[in-house]
Write a protein that binds this DNA or RNA. Structure first.
Lengths: 207, 207
DNA sequence: AATATATAACTGACCAGTCAGTTATTTTCA
DNA sequence: TGAAAATAACTGACTGGTCAGTTATATATT
């Protein structure tokens, strides 16, 4: 019956889980976890719904798989940043801010944090997992950096968690405003980075 | 049939919509908009499901009504803050930070922003409405304050939006961490406020 | 009596997850 | 080599449960 459009499927099961997770991320981001239909995800992965269930036991398992996959690279990247930066803490903070600004500007990358936050009320362990693996790690990395700066006489001796909030907070709220509330960007990333570092390092008050 | 347990209903209906919205806020916050059942909301308001539909046309209307009701006091409060503070901008910034810290620590108050963010992907106009009425207003208020400080020679002349992000970002990320990801508070609100103002005003770098 | 308020039973659409059957790919062995 | 057998990948129709919204009926208020 089918005209000659090539084979309907190939032996490529090894690649399937990743393809399905890609599709899941897109659909979850677009509609939210609850509203997303497994059939939509299947369609986006060019499969039937039944095939999705060959690779994942449930819609929830799809969510878990996705988050685990997306978390891995972040966690390792963070640790690397902190360790690399102890020699020149000011430059390292600069690097963190500019790297994170660029990452968070990217919708594809911000999609997972966004998704985690949206499912957190229902899936407490996912929330806890993300907090430990990403948020706490990030705070830890910044803390290491800050303490190194204090030891080197570069940074003032303030609560490290407060410093972490002053670094990540502005980046995060900007990302939420842009990606979730749909706000326009008024300043370019470069200008935002410069302004952020300026206020963070020099303070707001005239001296 | 019913034994003498008093009348089955006797209230003036005038109070109902507000009671239902209170119940809706509680249930939406607990389960999220999609998962929340109208029957749960009805039960929380001590009504039958049918009765809810006497006051609201749909579940979605319940959401809209709720958000509108919760937004009103915030918007007016913000404008007041900015205008009141032009005489002593430093004190006004201090006041904003300590007020907002306390407000955002309160789960009942953070519930609406949280809800808005969670439904934003599905209900774009709600997101846009909230952005205009709350986020943009807040930025505007801080901007007014900052410009006043610059004019008075107290604050450095930096991009006002960056200043707004440095004020609201750390507060917001802390609230998300606590209320959404379920993190413990490590420092008291007072200590957080002090540290925040210290870094914001004086900067991180030793001079 | 007439109206406003409320209930409980009901309907219809929707969708996660299942499964019997189909199609492609690989292996076996003549 | 090439046809048959075995296996892996996949499909789509179906089921069972859930829930937003409706309706027929009952109770309170004026």
């Amino acid at each position: 019956m089918r005209p000659a459009l090539g084979p309907k499927f190939r032996r490529r099961a090894g690649a399937r889980p990743d393809e399905i997770l890609d599709a899941a991320l897109a659909v979850f981001t677009d509609k939210g976890f609850e509203v997303a239909r497994v059939e939509d995800i299947a369609a986006a992965a060019k499969l039937s719904k039944g095939a999705v269930y060959l690779y994942f036991d449930s819609k929830e398992e799809l969510l878990r798989g996705l988050i685990e996959r997306e978390i891995a690279p972040i966690a390792s990247r963070l640790a690397a940043l902190a360790n690399a930066g102890t020699a020149d803490p000011k430059a390292a903070v600069r690097l963190i801010i500019s790297t994170a600004t660029q990452l968070l500007d990217n919708p594809r990358i911000f999609a997972t944090p966004r998704l985690v936050l949206s499912v957190a009320p229902r899936f407490k362990e996912i929330a806890a997992f993300y907090r430990r693996r990403v948020v706490d790690e990030a705070i830890g990395a910044i803390s290491v950096l800050h303490r190194a700066g204090v030891a080197g006489g570069v940074f003032r001796d303030i609560d490290s968690e407060a410093v972490a909030r002053m670094i990540m907070g502005p980046l995060f709220i900007q990302a939420m405003r842009k990606h979730v509330l749909g706000a326009e960007e008024t300043a370019s990333p470069e200008r935002r980075i410069d302004a952020h570092i300026d206020i963070l390092f020099e303070g707001l008050v005239v001296r």
